[in-house]
């Protein structure tokens, strides 16, 4: 039994002249709620794509529950659930069909898929919209149904890229509860987010990435080192304005 859910070593990716991810190494322990934070365009999504088999790295390895995802993808993917950011869903399917599809694609038995689909629809508060086509869902509902497709096979590791974006506060709280429960029973969650407050409250561990480089990593308390995570984040990343705003915007 390995104690590391995700071991990323020396991952690098370059798009043309732009280095998106620069030699990032990261260890995510089993049973942690791991926050990945960074400004827009920092390389979070690129990093997670390479760790989950969506994007081939230029260099480096990613071990998912001890299995190299680029050497043995099908074994690695069977214990991994991913909510990818910026990809479409098969949105001409209804919500129920989409979740079912995700289960069947993984080779699960029909009975199990049917039961878990209804459970997932219920906790995501989508039962009433289960027969609607996903294309007619709101942004938040689409996030929730995508999350359901990532969880149906009860993975050991959940990688969620921006899971709370556009999700209403009630659903977000419900999802947080589910994730906390999941972690309490031995699962591991990686979430990327812009919302420092949320990460500080929710996560046990955090990594800060900026410009494709890992700036800090460890337990939340280690990283924030006494101040709030947001203050520490701004300190690490920099780039705050000088306070010279738009003087003409003051209406009075």
């Amino acid at each position: 039994m390995t104690t590391v859910a995700l071991q990323v070593s020396n991952l690098s990716k370059q798009f043309g002249a732009k280095v998106a991810v620069n030699n990032v190494s990261l260890t995510v322990p089993v049973g942690s709620m791991f926050g990945l934070v960074g400004p827009n365009g920092a390389g979070k999504t690129t990093m997670l794509s390479m760790a989950t088999g969506l994007l081939r790295p230029d260099a480096g390895t990613a071990l998912v529950n001890g299995v190299d995802i680029w050497a043995d993808p099908s074994a690695a993917k069977s214990t991994l659930g991913v909510l990818a950011d910026g990809v479409r869903q098969f949105d001409r399917l209804s919500g129920r069909q989409l979740v079912t599809y995700s289960g069947l694609l993984r080779g699960m038995a029909q009975q199990e898929v049917a039961e878990r689909t209804e459970d997932l629809l219920r906790v995501m508060d989508l039962t009433n919209d289960a027969d609607k086509l996903v294309v007619d869902y709101s942004a938040g509902m689409t996030k929730k149904i995508a999350l359901a497709t990532a969880m149906i096979h009860s993975p050991k590791l959940l990688v969620l890229d921006e899971p709370f974006e556009a999700v209403d506060p009630v659903s977000a709280a419900n999802i947080r509860d589910i994730l906390a429960d999941y972690v309490a029973y031995g699962g591991t969650v990686i979430v990327s987010s812009h919302v420092m407050d949320l990460v500080q409250r929710m996560c046990t561990h955090v990594a800060v990435i900026d410009g494709g480089v890992l700036k800090a990593s460890g337990t939340v308390d280690e990283v924030r080192a006494g101040s709030t995570l947001e203050e520490r984040f701004v300190e690490l990343v920099g780039g705050r304005g000088t306070g010279e705003g738009l003087s003409w915007l003051r209406t009075s």
């Binding site: 088999g53 993808p73 690695a76 993917k77 991994l80 990809v87 869903q89 995700s102 694609l105 993984r106």
Partner: peptide
């Protein structure tokens, strides 16, 4: 990009 589901499920 909905194809991502096929990649992620490892079908």
């Amino acid at each position: 990009t909905a194809f991502a589901l096929h990649v992620l499920t490892g079908v």
